[in-house]
């Protein structure tokens, strides 16, 4: 897709990021997943500004644990998307608040 919008670029970027860190499990045809180890690597390489305590292993583990709905220790695309949403939603809230406070102080 050569001429996508900014939003489409963003969505594709997040998909590409999943593909970069996920792998197929051996020979089976199950969908790609991210292992815990790679997930932690992804958090610290790709989200190091947004998640300030990604270095904190325990926090990352809890995140994975909460996220890993089917408890197979690997993260599916849906679980990955939910995680990023969980990061985005508080940020969205903060940005909105900042915009409002700028308005009021003007």
């Amino acid at each position: 897709m050569a001429e996508g919008t900014e939003l489409e670029w963003a969505i594709q970027m997040l998909v590409k990021n999943f593909d970069k860190y996920s792998s197929r499990c051996c020979c089976c045809r199950k969908p790609r997943r991210i292992s815990k180890k790679d997930f932690r690597k992804m958090l610290s390489c790709e989200l190091n500004h947004m998640l300030t305590d990604t270095g904190n292993k325990r926090a990352a583990d809890k995140l994975i644990c909460d996220l890993d709905e089917n408890k197979d220790g690997r993260i599916s695309f849906e679980e990955y998307w939910t995680l990023i949403g969980g990061i985005a939603s508080p940020i969205a809230h903060i940005i909105r608040q900042q915009e409002q406070s700028v308005k009021y102080t003007k």
Binding site: E6, L7, W9, A10, I11, M13, L14, N17, C45, E46, L47, N48, H49, M50, I84, I87, A88, I91, A92, I95
Partner: peptide
């Protein structure tokens, strides 16, 4: 990072 910029873009839209 690109991933963070992507997240920001989705939020901004």
């Amino acid at each position: 990072t690109d991933v963070e910029r992507a997240i920001e873009t989705v939020i901004n839209q």
